[in-house]
Each structure stands twice: as structure tokens, then as C-alpha cells.
């Protein structure tokens, strides 16, 4: 595949629902109830449940691994959790849209900047992955 600075990765749009949150809680072992119980979320001053930050981070990386094919090519990945993703209790959940673009290529490693938007709000900051492209 041809990779150069400015290459745009295929976009990804994902609905994160309460079911997604419960599945991620079980799979990750992070059972903080603010992710599946409005009662506990409100007790913390939130309007309702929010997605696990690691669920958003893990889903965002699919932009890179879907593109690279082999997940073993991912060398590093970092994010800032800038805004929570509210997950309403309905069939649609939260629609999160991910995009990626190559910002650097050197020594067989591409640096990809990832955008993650929910309702037009940036939910991850400085999301960057390094991936082997040789």
C-alpha cells in the first residue's frame, strides 16, 4: 500500500450502546457502574452513563488496524481523554465517528493522527498511533 504524509485512512462510525458498555465491562473487568447505571453516574454529577475511556480508545484504534490489516504492526498508541462520551439508554446509543491521517513516515514507521468525534465534540485528544508500513 502506498503510504505518505497526508494519506487518509478509511473512516469508521460506531454506535456505542449500553450493551456495548456492558460487554466491555465484562471483557475488560472494569465494572465501574457509571458506565451502565444512570443512578451511579448521576451520583457523580454526570447526566447519565458515559462510555469507558478505554472502550473509546480501543474502538478508535480500529481505524488503524482495519487499514494496516495485521494488528501486530501497531508499535505505539496514546491518547488524552478530553471529553466523556454520553451513552443514552436507547437503541442507537452514541454515534462516534473516527478518522485517521498519516502525519509522518520514517524508517518504515507511519505516524497516524486519529480524530474521534461524538456529536461534533472531540472526545480524544492527541490520539496518535505508530504503525509499521514496510
Amino acid at each position: 500500500m502506498s503510504v505518505e504524509v497526508g494519506t487518509e485512512l478509511p473512516r469508521l462510525a460506531v454506535h456505542l450502546t449500553r450493551e456495548t458498555a456492558v460487554r466491555y465491562a465484562g471483557a475488560s473487568g472494569d465494572f465501574n457502574p457509571i458506565h451502565y447505571s444512570d443512578f451511579y453516574a448521576r451520583a457523580l454529577g454526570l447526566e447519565g452513563c458515559i462510555a469507558h475511556g478505554m472502550l473509546t480508545m480501543g474502538t478508535a484504534l480500529r481505524v488503524v488496524t482495519d487499514w494496516a490489516g495485521d494488528p501486530a504492526k501497531v508499535r505505539s498508541y496514546g491518547v488524552r481523554f478530553t471529553k466523556p462520551v454520553p451513552v443514552p439508554d436507547d437503541a442507537e446509543g452514541a454515534l462516534v465517528e473516527f478518522a485517521g491521517r498519516v502525519t509522518k513516515v520514517a524508517d518504515g514507521v507511519a505516524t497516524v493522527a486519529i480524530d474521534a468525534l461524538c456529536d461534533g465534540v472531540k472526545v480524544l485528544g492527541s490520539a496518535t498511533a505508530e504503525v509499521s508500513v514496510d
Partner: peptide, 29 residues
Amino acid sequence: FARALGDENPAYAGAEPVAPPTFAAVLAA
């Protein structure tokens, strides 16, 4: 874990899969 991320990458399937990269967070936690 891959199913929770909705990720159908074939590398995570079968009898000898690799883990999705952010699975490392589970062990780190």
C-alpha cells in the same frame, strides 16, 4: 474482548489469536 470492541479482525479469531492491542490495559489495570 474483540467482540466487545466490535472488531472482526481475523487475527483475533481462531485457536491461536493475538490480542487486540488495547487488551494490554486489562492486564495493566
